[in-house]
């Protein structure tokens, strides 16, 4: 198991913590599970990336697809606690414009509750 996620908060905004490596091998199963989980939900999402050790373009793609999906229902995605490398990839890939990085969990919740 190179990737796992756990739900830290299940009401709006939902907070999901991701643990492991999000690479070409794990991206598919992660994508399926997260979509399964979100299929009954219609809330804003905050990803806690503290335990995400690695992300490649395959992982970026999963986030992009999520953003795409949530945009249709005017919902938003935010992230907290990315490590330096993960943050770099998110910045390089241009994902930052669609998926804001919050300083901490309170900020993120406060920001999304307002929406």
């Amino acid at each position: 198991m190179t990737i796992a996620f756990s739900i830290l908060r299940s009401e709006n905004p939902i907070i999901i913590s991701i643990d492991g490596r999000l690479d070409a091998i794990s991206a598919n199963s992660f994508e399926t599970s997260i979509h399964d989980y979100l299929s009954q939900k219609n809330d804003n999402l905050i990803f806690d990336l503290e335990k995400l050790a690695y992300i490649s373009s395959a992982g970026i793609r999963v986030f992009l697809l999520l953003i795409n999906k949530l945009e249709a229902s005017k919902k938003k995605i935010g992230i907290i606690n990315p490590d330096e490398m993960v943050k770099e990839i998110i910045e390089i890939s241009g994902l930052k414009d669609y998926m804001p990085i919050f300083e901490d969990i309170e900020n993120a919740i406060a920001s999304f509750k307002r929406v």
Partner: peptide, 19 residues
Amino acid sequence: TSPGLDTLGKRGFYIIDKM
């Protein structure tokens, strides 16, 4: 091209270029 939501496939090459 600057990366956006519509350029999923090319993002990989963009990363290679940056790294």
